[in-house]
């Protein structure tokens, strides 16, 4: 019997890598990519564990999952960091900071 590749195995890998590239925009883009990759990876691992000899390409899924988890953590930390900074110093404080920095150069 021929082995099938796991569905979405390459997509998981691509999204896992994109989750770090999309670390701009307050980390929201990275969060979206990482969560999509994690959900797809969960489905794929469930399919693989049911009958492991039927499918191949589990390496891609495994790697994509790890990458997505790291991207998720990084984006989440960055998002929390932005929210905390915004809450403690606020818009005015940041504007002052920016003005000071602009003055230096």
């Amino acid at each position: 019997m021929e082995k099938q590749t796991l569905p979405n195995s390459t997509l998981i890998l691509v999204f896992g890598i994109l989750s770090i590239l999309g670390c701009c925009c307050y980390g929201i883009l990275g969060l979206i990519f990482a969560i999509v990759a994690l959900v797809l990876a969960k489905k794929a691992t469930a399919m693989y564990t049911e009958n492991p000899e039927l499918y191949e390409g589990y390496n891609n899924v495994k790697t994509g999952k790890i990458l997505a988890i790291i991207g998720l953590i990084l984006s989440a930390i960055y998002l929390v960091f932005v929210v905390i900074m915004f809450a403690t110093i606020g818009y005015e404080g940041y504007m002052d900071m920016v003005r000071e920095q602009m003055g230096q150069y």
């Binding site: 590239l21 670390c23 701009c24 925009c25 307050y26 980390g27 990084l74 960055y78 932005v82 900074m85 915004f86 818009y91 940041y94 504007m95 900071m97 920016v98």
Partner: peptide, 13 residues
């Protein structure tokens, strides 16, 4: 970069 424009901190990218 929206984060640099509105908040003033640079983002990771």
């Amino acid at each position: 970069c929206p984060s640099k424009e509105f908040i003033g901190i640079e983002c990771l990218g």
